[in-house]
Amino acid sequence: MTPMDFLLLTKGPLFSLAIAIFALGILIRLFEIFALGRAHNYAAARGNEVIPGLKTMYRRFNPDPGTFKRSTFDVVVGTLWHVGFVIALLMFIPHIELIKSTLGVSWPGLPNPVVDAVTAITLLGLVAVLIHRLTHPVKRFLSTPQDYLIWAVTFLPVLTGYLAYHRLINPYPLALGLHIFTVEIFLIVLPFTKLTHIFTAFVARYYNGAIFGRKGIQS
């Protein structure tokens, strides 16, 4: 197989397969959650559920000062690489083209040197969180093989994207093919691992906010 064959495979059938598994898997996961429902609550509510639920969806991006102080590394580096990942994913022009061709929506991208810098920071952040996971007593205690697996499948697309952009893998079709291939692994693995948190975290935050909101507390 030539590098161009590989690129065409990843851009064609493999990509279709990956997003099929991704869409199928993640929607199963989401509907599985929603279908479980919640028991009727007979207690008289002190507050609203919907608005605090929606607020909490946003508020957990922005931790309370105490948590920030006690877990500065997690908050700073965690936020940094998550934001970096999202910027690289959604603001890099070739990615926007891909989204446009798939979903039909598009938006202006960021200049490449900006995305490049953000990607570099994201890579460093990911390496730092891996080291943190390996050394921090609580994280090491909690970590399962799956945690390291999802770290790897998250790290690889960013790394291969960075290498492809800087042409550190040759020939280019191989570099681009590898990047797309690692993204496909990410998409396929996503619904079956805790990478689902990309979607379910917002569901979880909503429920959290709603449960507390009903009792009159903005969580």
Binding site: K11, G12, F15, S16, I19, P94, H95, E97, L98, S101
Partner: peptide, 9 residues
């Protein structure tokens, strides 16, 4: 565009 997949995703 180069990054656009070839199928109909």
């Amino acid at each position: 565009a180069l990054s656009v997949p070839t199928g109909s995703p």
